Simulated assay, not measured.
Amino acid sequence: MTDVIDGNAVAESVRDDLGGCIDTLAAAGVTPTLATVLMSDDPASETYVSMKQQDCEEVGIEARDIELDPDAPADRLFETIDDLNADPDVNGILVQMPVPDHVDDRRVLRRIDPMKDVDGFHPENVGRLVAGNARYKPCTPHGVQKVLAAADVETEGADAVVVGRSDIVGKPMANLLFQKAEGGNATVTVCHSRTADLAAKTGAADIVVAAAGVPEMIDGSMLSEGVTVIDVGINRVEADTEKGYELVGDVDFESAKAKAGAITPVPGGVGPMTRAMLLYNTVKAAGLQADVDVSLP
């Protein structure tokens, strides 16, 4: 019987556990505050930001919504980031990606104060992660760790394959899985677009994390019996639906489910965890900045 992991339920548990931390901060006169900066008129980006703000409000985190004209000069965004860096009441800063073409996204990441970088993408925070002393773990890989723990999937001694090498998911995911720490100690293979015989790699794995951004690229024929499959992909494909499309993962769910011992669906798997871990990082940031000890779950 395959365990279809309910990411919404795990995310709800994380949010519930944050309640005590937020109460501890409140007793010290601190309200965790996340500033979201949107410099885009892309409907998907607008939706993502709106959902993140709603999540904040539900758990007691203050959300600040800043919207910039996508045609504004890049300096407008950098000046906004500087103002937020200098504001002691703002604990976390999230600039919704992608930014317009005339804005250097890497410069954006470097501009955010590393103490307020709740995405965990500033070079300083990336370095700390690789060194095994993470300040803020990137939200999606950290969410995957929480999902694996909730499903009682043992990573220690496991053979794990991460398909994808992005800075956002693939690279930090591999680092977290092989580190000498809880939720790690796996033997990790990172696969990508140049990998020869991908099926041989995934077929030998105990855990497969699919994060390549290619719709349904992994199917049941590429997996071993009883494998744990974590599908990070969210791809919009044409479909005969009211919207004209549907969301699918990087894994062909039905054929993979027939092989897997545990699997995450799309939607409803890793996605809710990414948002929950953003709240986690914002609460952690507030505690670090105010020097208040919060017992994070």
Rank of each mutant, 00 (worst) to 15 (best):
T2C: 07
N8W: 02
A9N: 10
E12M: 08
V14D: 07
D23R: 14
L25R: 05
G29A: 11
L34F: 02
S40E: 15
P43E: 01
M51R: 12
D69H: 04
P70A: 01
T80Q: 15
I81D: 00
L84F: 04
L84A: 06
A86N: 14
A86V: 02
A86P: 10
D87S: 13
D89N: 11
G92M: 00
V95A: 04
P100Y: 04
H102R: 06
I112R: 03
G120Q: 11
G127L: 09
R135G: 01
T140K: 13
A149I: 03
D152C: 08
V163R: 01
S166C: 08
K171C: 05
M173D: 05
M173C: 15
A174G: 15
N175L: 15
Q179W: 00
K180V: 06
G184R: 00
H192I: 06
A196S: 14
K201D: 13
I207K: 13
A211D: 09
A211K: 09
M217N: 12
I218V: 14
G220V: 10
S224K: 15
I230S: 10
G233A: 12
E238I: 03
K243L: 12
G244N: 01
Y245T: 03
V248C: 10
D250Q: 02
V266M: 09
N281D: 05
L296D: 00
